[in-house]
Amino acid sequence: MKKNTRISRVNDEIFKEISQIVRAELKDPRIGAMTSVVRVDTTQDLKYCKVYVSVLGDEAQKESVMKGLKNAGGFIRHLIAERVNLRITPELIFKLDESAEYAVRMEQLMRQISQDREEREGAHEGE
């Protein structure tokens, strides 16, 4: 149990720092305001950290942001090493998280189904 809370604290610290870095410190024009860190997942041995990123935009914009983050990975890792007190600074692996877009899409579909049902019921009442 102790290790899980430690990893959880490490994840929280890394998440906080990477969010700050992405939001305010990266100068790469590819990484815009519509980029946000959703969560981080560090391995037990602290060698790797998956950074899940949400990007609002089309496929080209998402690809561009992911390339920018990958290029900035060494710089971000260096800043994490300075700010988070760890013996080993994990290697950062950036992953595109599309769960927010998926949720929006599902909500649109549910709304459409509900609207279609209301229209059908309204048509039946008029008969």
Rank of each mutant, 00 (worst) to 15 (best):
G122V: 05
Q108C: 01
M106I: 05
Q61C: 06
L79G: 07
R39L: 10
V104S: 07
I31P: 07
L56Y: 13
A81Q: 03
R87L: 11
E91V: 08
E98M: 09
R83L: 15
A72N: 08
I7D: 05
Q20C: 07
D28H: 03
V10A: 04
R83G: 09
L109E: 11
V10N: 02
V38F: 09
I31Y: 01
V104A: 14
M110K: 14
R83A: 04
F75Q: 07
L56A: 14
V37Y: 06
I80C: 07
M66C: 06
A60V: 15
V104K: 13
V40P: 02
T35S: 03
E121C: 04
R39G: 13
L79Y: 05
L79I: 14
K2V: 11
M1E: 03
V37I: 09
K27T: 14
S99I: 01
G57C: 01
S114G: 12
D41Y: 03
L26W: 00
K67R: 11
G126K: 14
A103N: 03
L79F: 08
D58E: 08
I80P: 00
A33Q: 04
R87Q: 11
L56F: 12
N85Q: 08
C49L: 04
E59L: 04
T42S: 13
N11I: 14
F94R: 10
S8Q: 10
N85T: 12
M1Q: 11
Y48P: 08
L92A: 00
D58A: 04
